[in-house]
Computed example of a mutant assay.
Amino acid sequence: MSRALQRRENVSGYLFMLPSLIFFAGFVIIPMFICIFLSLTDANMHGSSMFGNFIGFANFVKLFSDKTFLRALWNTFLIVVVSVPTVCIFSLWVSSAIYKMHGAARSFFRIVFYLPVVTGSVAVTVVWKWMYDNYTGIFNYVLKGVGLIDKNINWLGDERFALWCIILILFTTSVGQPIVLYVSALGNVDQSLVEAAQVDGANNFQVFWKIKWPQIMPTTLYILVITTINSFQCFALIQLLTSGGSGTNTVMYYIYFTAFKLTEQAGHFGYANAMGVILALAIAALSALQFRLAKEK
Protein backbone atom coordinates (compact mmCIF):
# COMPACT_ATOMS: atom_id res chain seq x y z
CA MET A 1 0.00 0.00 0.00
CA SER A 2 1.36 3.39 -0.99
CA ARG A 3 1.84 6.12 1.57
CA ALA A 4 -0.72 8.33 -0.16
CA LEU A 5 -3.38 5.60 -0.03
CA GLN A 6 -2.54 4.80 3.58
CA ARG A 7 -2.73 8.49 4.51
CA ARG A 8 -6.09 8.82 2.74
CA GLU A 9 -7.48 5.80 4.60
CA ASN A 10 -6.24 7.19 7.91
CA VAL A 11 -7.89 10.54 7.23
CA SER A 12 -11.14 8.81 6.28
CA GLY A 13 -11.04 6.75 9.47
CA TYR A 14 -10.50 9.80 11.67
CA LEU A 15 -13.31 11.65 9.90
CA PHE A 16 -15.68 8.80 10.70
CA MET A 17 -14.50 8.91 14.31
CA LEU A 18 -14.76 12.70 14.55
CA PRO A 19 -18.38 12.93 15.85
CA SER A 20 -17.61 10.46 18.64
CA LEU A 21 -14.31 12.18 19.42
CA ILE A 22 -16.03 15.58 19.67
CA PHE A 23 -18.67 14.13 21.98
CA PHE A 24 -16.03 12.36 24.10
CA ALA A 25 -13.90 15.48 24.37
CA GLY A 26 -16.84 17.78 25.12
CA PHE A 27 -18.57 15.61 27.69
CA VAL A 28 -15.71 13.59 29.21
CA ILE A 29 -12.23 15.06 28.74
CA ILE A 30 -13.01 18.76 29.18
CA PRO A 31 -15.36 18.25 32.19
CA MET A 32 -12.70 16.03 33.76
CA PHE A 33 -10.10 18.80 33.64
CA ILE A 34 -12.65 21.35 34.86
CA CYS A 35 -13.42 19.05 37.80
CA ILE A 36 -9.74 18.76 38.69
CA PHE A 37 -9.30 22.53 38.52
CA LEU A 38 -12.42 23.26 40.60
CA SER A 39 -11.25 20.80 43.24
CA LEU A 40 -8.39 23.22 43.91
CA THR A 41 -10.72 26.18 44.44
CA ASP A 42 -13.45 27.32 46.83
CA ALA A 43 -15.92 27.54 43.95
CA ASN A 44 -19.55 28.16 44.82
CA MET A 45 -22.48 28.27 42.39
CA HIS A 46 -23.75 31.39 44.15
CA GLY A 47 -20.45 33.25 43.96
CA SER A 48 -19.58 36.09 41.63
CA SER A 49 -17.17 33.81 39.77
CA MET A 50 -17.99 30.18 38.95
CA PHE A 51 -14.32 29.23 39.37
CA GLY A 52 -13.87 30.75 42.84
CA ASN A 53 -10.48 31.37 44.43
CA PHE A 54 -7.50 29.06 44.14
CA ILE A 55 -6.86 27.34 47.50
CA GLY A 56 -4.55 24.49 46.48
CA PHE A 57 -5.06 21.15 48.21
CA ALA A 58 -7.09 22.55 51.10
CA ASN A 59 -10.22 20.68 49.99
CA PHE A 60 -8.35 17.37 49.92
CA VAL A 61 -6.88 17.98 53.38
CA LYS A 62 -10.36 18.76 54.69
CA LEU A 63 -11.80 15.60 53.15
CA PHE A 64 -9.80 13.22 55.30
CA SER A 65 -10.94 14.94 58.49
CA ASP A 66 -14.57 14.96 57.37
CA LYS A 67 -16.30 12.14 59.28
CA THR A 68 -19.29 12.20 56.94
CA PHE A 69 -17.07 11.72 53.89
CA LEU A 70 -15.06 8.96 55.58
CA ARG A 71 -18.28 7.13 56.48
CA ALA A 72 -19.55 7.57 52.92
CA LEU A 73 -16.22 6.26 51.59
CA TRP A 74 -16.44 3.24 53.88
CA ASN A 75 -20.02 2.53 52.76
CA THR A 76 -18.96 2.80 49.12
CA PHE A 77 -16.07 0.37 49.55
CA LEU A 78 -18.34 -2.02 51.45
CA ILE A 79 -20.81 -1.98 48.57
CA VAL A 80 -18.00 -2.66 46.09
CA VAL A 81 -16.33 -5.41 48.15
CA VAL A 82 -19.64 -7.24 48.70
CA SER A 83 -21.42 -6.72 45.38
CA VAL A 84 -18.59 -7.22 42.85
CA PRO A 85 -17.49 -10.76 43.89
CA THR A 86 -21.06 -11.95 44.51
CA VAL A 87 -22.28 -10.62 41.14
CA CYS A 88 -19.40 -12.29 39.28
CA ILE A 89 -19.67 -15.64 41.10
CA PHE A 90 -23.46 -15.81 40.88
CA SER A 91 -23.46 -14.75 37.22
CA LEU A 92 -20.90 -17.41 36.31
CA TRP A 93 -22.82 -20.10 38.20
CA VAL A 94 -26.16 -19.20 36.58
CA SER A 95 -24.68 -18.81 33.10
CA SER A 96 -23.01 -22.22 33.41
CA ALA A 97 -26.42 -23.75 34.11
CA ILE A 98 -28.17 -21.75 31.38
CA TYR A 99 -25.57 -22.63 28.76
CA LYS A 100 -26.37 -26.35 29.09
CA MET A 101 -30.05 -25.75 28.23
CA HIS A 102 -31.64 -25.87 24.80
CA GLY A 103 -32.01 -22.72 22.72
CA ALA A 104 -35.54 -21.66 23.77
CA ALA A 105 -34.95 -22.23 27.48
CA ARG A 106 -31.58 -20.49 27.30
CA SER A 107 -33.12 -17.43 25.64
CA PHE A 108 -35.98 -17.36 28.17
CA PHE A 109 -33.68 -17.28 31.20
CA ARG A 110 -31.39 -14.69 29.60
CA ILE A 111 -34.44 -12.45 29.11
CA VAL A 112 -35.60 -13.01 32.69
CA PHE A 113 -32.24 -12.07 34.20
CA TYR A 114 -31.62 -9.19 31.79
CA LEU A 115 -35.06 -7.60 32.24
CA PRO A 116 -34.10 -5.53 35.35
CA VAL A 117 -31.20 -4.03 33.36
CA VAL A 118 -33.45 -2.54 30.67
CA THR A 119 -36.21 -1.61 33.10
CA GLY A 120 -36.09 1.98 34.34
CA SER A 121 -34.22 2.37 37.61
CA VAL A 122 -37.05 4.45 39.06
CA ALA A 123 -39.61 1.73 38.30
CA VAL A 124 -37.40 -0.97 39.82
CA THR A 125 -36.78 1.17 42.90
CA VAL A 126 -40.50 1.83 43.42
CA VAL A 127 -41.19 -1.91 43.41
CA TRP A 128 -38.41 -2.61 45.89
CA LYS A 129 -39.55 0.27 48.09
CA TRP A 130 -42.99 -1.33 48.31
CA MET A 131 -41.41 -4.70 49.14
CA TYR A 132 -39.40 -3.08 51.95
CA ASP A 133 -42.35 -1.04 53.26
CA ASN A 134 -42.62 -1.07 57.03
CA TYR A 135 -46.36 -1.75 57.09
CA THR A 136 -47.48 -3.26 53.74
CA GLY A 137 -44.21 -4.68 52.41
CA ILE A 138 -44.03 -8.26 51.24
CA PHE A 139 -40.86 -9.01 53.22
CA ASN A 140 -42.48 -8.25 56.57
CA TYR A 141 -45.64 -10.07 55.50
CA VAL A 142 -43.80 -13.27 54.54
CA LEU A 143 -41.40 -13.26 57.50
CA LYS A 144 -44.25 -12.74 59.97
CA GLY A 145 -46.27 -15.41 58.19
CA VAL A 146 -43.57 -18.05 58.67
CA GLY A 147 -42.91 -16.93 62.24
CA LEU A 148 -39.36 -15.62 61.77
CA ILE A 149 -40.21 -12.17 63.15
CA ASP A 150 -42.79 -10.95 65.68
CA LYS A 151 -43.08 -7.35 64.55
CA ASN A 152 -42.46 -5.41 61.36
CA ILE A 153 -38.90 -4.40 60.54
CA ASN A 154 -38.18 -0.92 59.25
CA TRP A 155 -35.80 -2.18 56.57
CA LEU A 156 -34.83 1.21 55.10
CA GLY A 157 -34.96 3.13 58.37
CA ASP A 158 -32.79 0.88 60.51
CA GLU A 159 -29.02 1.26 60.13
CA ARG A 160 -28.57 -2.47 60.74
CA PHE A 161 -30.44 -3.35 57.54
CA ALA A 162 -30.64 -0.31 55.27
CA LEU A 163 -27.26 -0.58 53.53
CA TRP A 164 -27.66 -4.34 53.02
CA CYS A 165 -31.06 -3.71 51.47
CA ILE A 166 -29.40 -1.34 49.00
CA ILE A 167 -26.73 -3.94 48.22
CA LEU A 168 -29.42 -6.57 47.57
CA ILE A 169 -31.18 -4.30 45.05
CA LEU A 170 -27.86 -3.44 43.39
CA PHE A 171 -27.06 -7.15 43.14
CA THR A 172 -30.35 -8.05 41.46
CA THR A 173 -30.03 -5.24 38.92
CA SER A 174 -26.37 -6.00 38.16
CA VAL A 175 -26.37 -9.71 37.32
CA GLY A 176 -28.25 -9.48 34.02
CA GLN A 177 -25.45 -8.21 31.78
CA PRO A 178 -22.74 -10.51 33.25
CA ILE A 179 -24.98 -13.56 32.76
CA VAL A 180 -25.55 -12.71 29.10
CA LEU A 181 -21.82 -12.09 28.59
CA TYR A 182 -20.79 -15.30 30.35
CA VAL A 183 -23.24 -17.39 28.30
CA SER A 184 -21.68 -15.97 25.12
CA ALA A 185 -18.15 -16.50 26.46
CA LEU A 186 -18.87 -20.13 27.35
CA GLY A 187 -20.16 -20.63 23.82
CA ASN A 188 -16.77 -19.54 22.46
CA VAL A 189 -14.77 -22.04 24.53
CA ASP A 190 -12.81 -24.45 22.34
CA GLN A 191 -14.79 -27.69 22.73
CA SER A 192 -11.98 -29.79 21.30
CA LEU A 193 -9.86 -28.95 24.34
CA VAL A 194 -12.76 -29.79 26.66
CA GLU A 195 -13.30 -33.15 24.97
CA ALA A 196 -9.58 -33.94 25.04
CA ALA A 197 -9.43 -33.17 28.79
CA GLN A 198 -12.48 -35.37 29.44
CA VAL A 199 -10.92 -38.23 27.48
CA ASP A 200 -7.80 -37.91 29.64
CA GLY A 201 -9.97 -38.34 32.75
CA ALA A 202 -10.39 -34.74 33.92
CA ASN A 203 -13.46 -34.12 36.10
CA ASN A 204 -15.86 -31.20 35.65
CA PHE A 205 -13.99 -28.91 38.04
CA GLN A 206 -10.64 -29.60 36.38
CA VAL A 207 -12.15 -28.97 32.94
CA PHE A 208 -13.58 -25.67 34.14
CA TRP A 209 -10.46 -24.49 35.99
CA LYS A 210 -7.86 -25.55 33.42
CA ILE A 211 -9.75 -25.14 30.13
CA LYS A 212 -12.78 -22.90 30.42
CA TRP A 213 -11.62 -20.37 33.03
CA PRO A 214 -8.52 -19.15 31.12
CA GLN A 215 -10.60 -18.73 27.95
CA ILE A 216 -13.32 -16.66 29.64
CA MET A 217 -10.83 -14.55 31.61
CA PRO A 218 -11.14 -11.51 29.25
CA THR A 219 -14.92 -11.54 29.80
CA THR A 220 -14.40 -11.89 33.54
CA LEU A 221 -12.04 -8.91 33.56
CA TYR A 222 -14.56 -6.78 31.68
CA ILE A 223 -17.34 -7.79 34.07
CA LEU A 224 -15.17 -7.04 37.11
CA VAL A 225 -14.25 -3.57 35.87
CA ILE A 226 -17.77 -2.61 34.79
CA THR A 227 -19.36 -3.95 37.98
CA THR A 228 -16.77 -2.14 40.09
CA ILE A 229 -17.44 1.18 38.36
CA ASN A 230 -21.22 0.75 38.67
CA SER A 231 -20.93 -0.12 42.35
CA PHE A 232 -18.74 2.91 43.07
CA GLN A 233 -21.30 5.11 41.29
CA CYS A 234 -24.33 3.89 43.24
CA PHE A 235 -26.53 6.97 43.51
CA ALA A 236 -30.11 6.56 42.25
CA LEU A 237 -30.98 3.85 44.78
CA ILE A 238 -29.68 5.96 47.65
CA GLN A 239 -31.51 9.09 46.56
CA LEU A 240 -34.84 7.39 45.89
CA LEU A 241 -34.91 5.10 48.93
CA THR A 242 -33.08 6.74 51.84
CA SER A 243 -31.67 10.12 50.72
CA GLY A 244 -28.42 9.15 52.40
CA GLY A 245 -30.05 8.44 55.75
CA SER A 246 -29.96 5.32 57.91
CA GLY A 247 -26.23 4.94 57.38
CA THR A 248 -26.50 4.54 53.60
CA ASN A 249 -24.62 7.65 52.52
CA THR A 250 -22.17 6.97 49.67
CA VAL A 251 -19.54 9.13 48.01
CA MET A 252 -21.69 9.70 44.92
CA TYR A 253 -24.67 10.83 46.97
CA TYR A 254 -22.49 12.98 49.23
CA ILE A 255 -21.03 14.67 46.13
CA TYR A 256 -24.53 15.51 44.91
CA PHE A 257 -25.67 16.67 48.36
CA THR A 258 -22.59 18.83 48.89
CA ALA A 259 -22.60 20.40 45.42
CA PHE A 260 -26.30 21.12 44.99
CA LYS A 261 -27.80 21.17 48.49
CA LEU A 262 -25.17 23.09 50.43
CA THR A 263 -24.13 25.71 47.88
CA GLU A 264 -25.42 28.57 50.03
CA GLN A 265 -22.18 28.18 51.99
CA ALA A 266 -18.87 29.06 50.33
CA GLY A 267 -16.57 26.35 49.14
CA HIS A 268 -18.95 23.42 48.77
CA PHE A 269 -18.90 23.17 44.97
CA GLY A 270 -15.11 22.93 44.88
CA TYR A 271 -15.26 20.57 47.84
CA ALA A 272 -17.64 18.28 45.93
CA ASN A 273 -15.27 18.24 42.96
CA ALA A 274 -12.45 17.19 45.28
CA MET A 275 -14.59 14.21 46.32
CA GLY A 276 -15.12 13.42 42.65
CA VAL A 277 -11.37 13.37 42.05
CA ILE A 278 -10.84 11.02 45.00
CA LEU A 279 -13.60 8.72 43.72
CA ALA A 280 -12.11 8.67 40.21
CA LEU A 281 -8.66 7.83 41.60
CA ALA A 282 -10.12 5.01 43.69
CA ILE A 283 -11.91 3.54 40.67
CA ALA A 284 -8.78 3.86 38.52
CA ALA A 285 -6.57 2.22 41.16
CA LEU A 286 -8.92 -0.71 41.71
CA SER A 287 -9.39 -1.21 37.96
CA ALA A 288 -5.62 -1.19 37.44
CA LEU A 289 -5.25 -3.78 40.20
CA GLN A 290 -7.84 -5.98 38.50
CA PHE A 291 -5.98 -5.70 35.18
CA ARG A 292 -2.71 -6.63 36.90
CA LEU A 293 -4.21 -9.66 38.64
CA ALA A 294 -5.90 -10.80 35.42
CA LYS A 295 -2.60 -10.62 33.52
CA GLU A 296 -0.90 -12.73 36.18
CA LYS A 297 -3.56 -15.40 35.71
Rank of each mutant, 00 (worst) to 15 (best):
D66P: 11
A266Q: 07
V225S: 10
W213L: 12
W164P: 11
L63A: 10
Y271E: 05
L237Y: 06
T263R: 11
E9A: 05
F232S: 07
E264S: 15
A285N: 14
L193D: 01
G47C: 04
L5Y: 00
A72K: 13
M17H: 04
Q215G: 08
K62C: 12
I79E: 05
A284E: 08
F54V: 09
K67A: 14
L293I: 13
K210W: 01
A58E: 13
V199H: 09
M45C: 06
L262S: 13
V94L: 07
Q198Y: 10
C35D: 09
K295F: 00
K295A: 06
G157C: 12
Q6G: 03
E296C: 07
C88Q: 12
V28P: 02
L78S: 12
A202Q: 11
G187V: 06
Q198D: 03
I226T: 15
S48H: 00
Y253P: 02
L63N: 09
Y14T: 00
R3W: 06
L40E: 08
Q191G: 04
G13D: 09
I153Y: 05
V277D: 05
L168Q: 09
V277A: 02
A202E: 08
I238C: 04
P214E: 08
V225M: 04
W128L: 03
V11F: 00
K261E: 02
T248K: 07
M131E: 15
S2L: 06
V118Q: 10
L237S: 00
F139M: 03
V142R: 06
K144A: 10
Y99A: 06
G247I: 15
R8V: 08
L281F: 11
T76G: 12
I166Q: 04
I30F: 04
R7P: 02
